[in-house]
Structures are given as C-alpha cells and as structure tokens.
C-alpha cells in the first residue's frame, strides 16, 4: 500500500480512534417534551423509552448526526416513523423535575446502565434481530417551564475494551476495490438502501467471495453462511465524514463481533453517501484487530463505558456538554407581541 500522508496522519497500525457523533435536537422536540411534561409526565421522572433517528453521512464535508424530533417521544410500541432518512434507534430519556435533580444525576452510573443493556443485547442475540440496538443512546434533561428553556445532555454509550482495538489499515473503498467490484458493491448498497425492509438496518455484512457479484446480508443471516474462507466486509452506516477516521458506530460493532461472533480481526466498511447515492470514495474500507476479551460472559459484569457528548477522555477532564432548547418563541407574551 502506498502511504498517503495527507490521508493518514499517524502511521499504521495505531490504536483505533473514531469520529465522535453529535446530537441534533430539533426545537419541536423541545416543545413536544414540554407538552408531554405538562400533560402526561407531571412530576414523574422515571426513565422513558424514546427513539432517535440516525443516518449515514450524506455529504463529503458534513457528518451525519443523531436526531431527536417530536416523533422521538411517540412510545416505541406505537412509533412507525422510519425510512432511509430516519433510521430509528432506541434511547432512554430521563427528564428531571428541577435543576437540583438534574445536577444530582449520577451520570457515570446511568451511562454504565445503558452500556449494560447494550452488552446484554449482544450476548443474548438481540442485536442480530435488531442491529440498531448497538446505537442505543441516553438523554438527561430538565425542562425549565417557567423560563421556556430545556437543558439536556446526550450520551452515546460506547463499550470500553480493556485491551486495545488496533487499526491496521484504512483507505477509501474506491482505492481498495477493483472497478468491477466497486460497481457491484455500489449496486448492492443501492438496493439495500432502497428496500423498506433493510434501509433501517444500520449494520450488515458484505459477502465478496463470488467473482461476479457482491451480496449484502443482514446480521441475522450469519448463522447460515459462516465458515469457509470467504472474503467478508462488516459494513455499517457511518455518520462520520472524515477520511482519516471511521465513525463512532464502529466501536460497538467491533464489541459485538468480538463478544458474540468471537472474531479477533475483521475488515470493515464505513458506508457513506453523497446525496442519495453510495459514495465509495468517501466510504472507507479498513481492518482492525482486537484481542479476545475476558470476563464479559459473566451475567453481572458491568462494562466500562464512555460517550457523554462533548466529553474528552483523553485529557483527563470530563466536561459534559450541556445544551439547551429555547422555547421562548412559544411563550404567550412573545406570541402576543408578534401579533400586534
């Protein structure tokens, strides 16, 4: 492989780092939460299940995000909202009653609890049926109704391996694949993205063994097809846009491949789009290795986790990002002013 300094800032192999994900909370979500608090929740601050919406990166210079919209608060059992542009992901919302309650939340504990759910879903085989469970997220909030503000923080729990994940290679998919293969992969990805059944599944695997065509398969089809020395790529919708790093979703995917499918080295595909089309120049193919973990089989095991938005573990500080939604435009006084 010819080294490309401008694409790879640090020599390979190197510890696997990924591009962080950001949340994008629509103002209407805030209003829906305000109404939910007023009409339904009252002072109940127990966790409620919500839905976030995830998409791969669709532009070479802008990463994708996890979105919260009013639909996010529709109970998952009744929520059918989802499409290629809104891949539903399960989350938990804890809306506290006052600022003190918000400050007193044990954020590390809450994050670990969510990570434990992810671990449980990996071990029990739930991921194969519902891959988006790997992207589980957590929101803590405080709705300051008097001042028409909602304060919140979002966490994207990511399981921490004690041993390091190592990145062995990472290149643009269009450089790795022959033209013919690239064409075939592109075609299969288009089909995957245009089918209602598969477009909401952010994790998949690509069977490259056949000479002529490339087949994309769901995780749940793994059992039938494993073994033999096939050439496989483990693909996922990558929210990231950077050419030198895979996106955030890869970490839990590797945790799954390691813990559930007992792999120690995989080739992965970071799937990215341009507009509505697969973009194999921006999509990355890489290889990562990770030694087998120990002790994770224990059902009481609580994994270490990171993932509060804005947190930078590297520098030893943990400055949690606090965001706010301003609903002042909904206040009656403001509305009266505007209509005069």
């Amino acid at each position: 492989m010819a080294p490309k300094a401008e694409v790879r800032p640090r020599p390979l192999p190197r510890p696997l780092m990924v591009e962080a994900i950001t949340s994008c909370v629509e103002t209407p979500f805030g209003e829906a939460l305000r109404l939910l608090k007023l009409d339904v929740l009252g002072t109940d601050d127990s966790p409620i299940p919500i839905t976030g919406y995830y998409t791969p990166c669709t532009h070479p210079k802008v990463s994708g995000s996890l979105r919260l919209s009013p639909e996010s608060l529709v109970p998952p059992s009744a929520n059918s909202f989802g499409s290629r542009n809104y891949c539903p992901v399960p989350g938990t919302l804890i809306n506290t009653n006052n600022i003190r309650g918000f400050q007193n939340l044990d954020v590390e504990y809450l994050l670990r609890e969510e990570a434990k759910k992810i671990l449980h879903d990996i071990m029990s085989g739930k991921i194969e049926e519902g891959p988006s469970l790997l992207l589980r997220f957590l929101v803590i909030s405080f709705a300051d109704l008097k001042n028409w503000k909602i304060y919140y923080s979002v966490a994207f729990p990511s399981l921490v391996f004690k041993s390091e994940m190592t990145l062995l290679s990472l290149r643009s998919a269009s450089l790795v694949l022959s033209q013919e293969k690239a064409k075939s992969l592109s075609k299969s990805l288009k089909e995957w993205r245009s089918s209602n059944e598969t477009t909401v599944l952010p994790f998949f695997w690509v069977d490259m063994s056949s000479d002529s065509s490339i087949v994309i398969r769901q995780l749940k089809d793994w059992k039938d097809c494993q073994d033999s020395g096939q050439k496989l790529l483990f693909g996922f919708y990558d929210n990231g846009y950077r050419q030198d790093y895979p996106g955030w979703a890869l970490r839990n995917y590797i945790a799954f491949l390691s813990l559930r499918w007992k792999m120690e080295k995989v080739q992965f595909l970071c799937y990215r789009e341009r507009g509505s089309e697969p973009d194999l120049e921006k999509s990355l193919i890489g290889e990562a290795s990770f030694p087998p973990p120990h002790g994770w089989d224990d059902s009481d095991y609580v994994p270490a986790a990171i993932g509060w938005e804005g947190e930078k573990p590297g520098d030893g500080r943990k400055e949690k990002k606090l965001k706010e939604i301003n609903l002042e435009s909904m206040s009656p006084e403001r509305r009266d002013e505007e209509h005069q």
């Binding site: 510890p15 990463s63 955030w248 990171i306 573990p313 030893g316 943990k318």
Partner: peptide
C-alpha cells in the same frame, strides 16, 4: 444572556479528575 441560570451548573462530580483514559474519539 443565553446561558443564564445554568451558568451555575457544573459537572462537579467526583469522577471528573479520575485517571486519564486513552482517547477513543476524535472531535472536530
């Protein structure tokens, strides 16, 4: 003026100065 009351909010948790962890994420 946009960050009023919550200016006082700080993540004061005791966990904040724990041992530095390796970097797993790159931010923009």
């Amino acid at each position: 003026e946009d960050i009023p009351d919550m200016d006082t909010y700080e993540d004061t948790g005791d966990h904040s100065t724990a041992t530095p962890q390796p970097s797993y994420f790159v931010a923009e």
